[in-house]
Amino acid sequence: MNEPFRNHRGIAAPLYRINVDTDAIIPSREMKRVSREGLGEGLFANWRYTDPATRQPNPDFVLNQEPWQQATILLAGANFGCGSSREHAVWALKDFGFRAIIAPSFGSIFQGNCICNGIVPVILDDDTVATLARSEQENPGRPITVDLENLFVIDSEGNQHPFNLGEDARKMLLEGLDPIALTLTQDDLIGEFLNQDRQKRPWVYLENCSTSSAE
């Protein structure tokens, strides 16, 4: 269950690089346990620490600088979250405190993972994101707002930038719904579909063979 997201006002950190992949967001070796918790420390580990092993902070990295240590919104470049499907990338961002990410485009699996975890993926055109990032660099720390009810971003000057989000995703985020519970309300439909499909495509349905040959 996620915290419902209606609108959120916060500090936006500019990390305006293109093609930031999920290995960069959370390096594989930071996924140390079979768990979704405590991943914030490994967020951007290769950039955030001069040596990820000793956790020595790299002063040049945006999330180590004031006021962006308190950021809850990320201003990112195109194709943010491309690469590996690891949901740990989203869990790490969430654990750090991010509630929304604004970018010109997202890796598609990453975008879905955001929605499952109550983080709003906001798509604005490249120039708008560039402008937001620039004004954040020039006047750090002036909060911006992501308004999910009305579907726009309000910048620090008060300008509104509309964005789109699928109706289903928006509803899920607004209400903090558990997607599985939502789908299970349609269980009858699924059952009906399966009965018909089994007639049409019988080869899809396999007999249970819990015979692992390793046993």
Partner: peptide
Amino acid sequence: GIGSSEAEHALATGTLV
């Protein structure tokens, strides 16, 4: 490819949105 939450969804319901 999907994330872990979507994998749970697919396992439990046999479907995905």
